[in-house]
């Protein structure tokens, strides 16, 4: 009885192992089906999903104009104080004072990529881009000013 059980145990053990080994061997002989990416070497061909949330940027058009009105909705929506909107007053040609941004300070090191600021912005002035290699040697490099120097608000955006 004992011997019979012992032999059937050994038999079951060996067959179940061989079954598993067959699967392993199959992939060993079919390297095409392996999906590992050779990351740092394939940078040139790397495709990231266009929605991937990597960093907040402010798109500018060819005239160096953006769509930000300085309304601070993004600053209020951000859960961890990543965005700070510094506003100033421009004088329009008619002599009226108009609120505009001086700087939109973005602390990349604090950002959790939650996308709440982008959703909150009423004029679609900021968006997420799929850049992800953010390592730098000095933390201060991660504090960015999103509006480009000497940029202006686009005509017709209130």
């Amino acid at each position: 009885m004992f011997l019979k059980e012992y032999i059937s145990d050994v038999y079951n053990g060996v067959t179940s192992l061989l079954k598993g080994m067959r699967k392993t061997g199959y992939y060993f002989l079919h390297p095409k089906e392996i999906i590992t990416e050779q990351y740092p070497d394939n940078r040139a061909t790397l495709v990231l999903a266009e929605r991937f949330k990597g960093e907040v940027v402010m798109p500018h058009d060819q005239n160096n104009e953006h769509a930000c009105t300085g309304c601070t909705a993004c600053e209020l929506a951000c859960p961890n104080g990543t965005i700070k909107v510094v506003t100033k007053f421009d004088v329009t040609p008619e002599g009226k004072k108009k609120k505009a941004i001086d700087a939109l300070v973005y602390h990349l090191e604090l950002c959790t990529m939650c996308n709440l600021c982008v959703v909150a912005c009423p004029s679609d002035a900021i968006k997420m881009v799929p850049t992800f290699e953010h390592s730098v040697f000095d933390r201060s490099k991660l504090t960015k000013i999103l509006n480009k120097p000497a940029s202006k608000i686009r005509e017709g955006i209130e």
Binding site: L48, M113, N115
Partner: peptide, 26 residues
């Protein structure tokens, strides 16, 4: 990959907002 394409992140998606989802599916 499906998550990345639709929600924009692989692990901490933050795709759900009160009242629905943040943006439409891909």
């Amino acid at each position: 990959e499906i998550m990345e394409e639709t929600c924009g992140a692989r692990l901490t998606m933050n795709y759900i907002v009160p009242g629905g989802v943040m943006y439409d599916i891909h």
